[in-house]
Simulated scan of single mutants.
Amino acid sequence: MFENLTAFFLHWAITGVSLWIASLVFSKGLKFDSSGSLIISALLLGFANAIVKPLLIVLTLPLTLLTFGLFLLVINALVLLLVAFFVKGFKVSGFWTAVFASLFISILSIIIGGFFVGGTPDTTIQMPSGGTWL
């Protein structure tokens, strides 16, 4: 039951560090009032990326295809703005800040994850095999 807990905490920490560095880079547009709001934002951003973002991608697939995938940047920004809306103490100044910050957070998470997550079974979140999903 707890096999994937280490990988979950590692991904959560990577997201939190990426958000923190992004708040330093975009100091006027991305702000956290406390470390608690940073931790909650990292957790909620992970859940939003896992649940809300795939739904938005499927619902906007024609628009994404029409724009050759550039609409995915808008979806990333909307997910970041959604998290900022729900977390008290996390502020994003505007849409364009959210676009550039989400792009920065994504790239930084990939880079940091490359150092810590080597693709080993210990650090990869495994889905149960077999059975039916629906």
Rank of each mutant, 00 (worst) to 15 (best):
S27V: 06
A13W: 04
S34V: 05
M127P: 00
S27Q: 13
I107P: 08
L70K: 10
F104I: 00
V74Q: 11
F86Y: 13
G36W: 13
L5A: 14
G113V: 02
V92Q: 09
V52S: 03
I21K: 03
F71S: 10
G89M: 12
W133L: 12
S18I: 02
I105L: 04
S27Y: 11
F90I: 07
S129H: 13
F2A: 14
V99A: 12
V79S: 00
A101E: 07
L81R: 04
I105R: 04
S23F: 09
S102C: 01
F26V: 00
L10S: 09
A42Y: 07
I14S: 10
L134K: 04
S106V: 01
S27I: 07
L73Y: 15
F100H: 04
N76M: 06
K91F: 05
Q126L: 09
G113M: 04
V87D: 12
V79C: 06
G118N: 07
S23H: 09
S34F: 04
G114M: 01
T120G: 12
L59S: 11
L134S: 12
E3T: 05
F90G: 12
S102T: 01
V25W: 08
S102Q: 03
L43R: 05
L82V: 00
F95Q: 03
G113D: 12
G94M: 09
L66G: 07
T123R: 05
S18A: 15
F116N: 01
G131C: 01
T123Y: 10
F71G: 06
S109I: 02
G69H: 12
A48K: 00
P128V: 02
T120D: 13
L103S: 09
L134A: 06
L10C: 10
G119A: 01
T123F: 05
G118R: 03
T67Y: 11
A48S: 15
F32N: 04
A13D: 07
A98T: 00
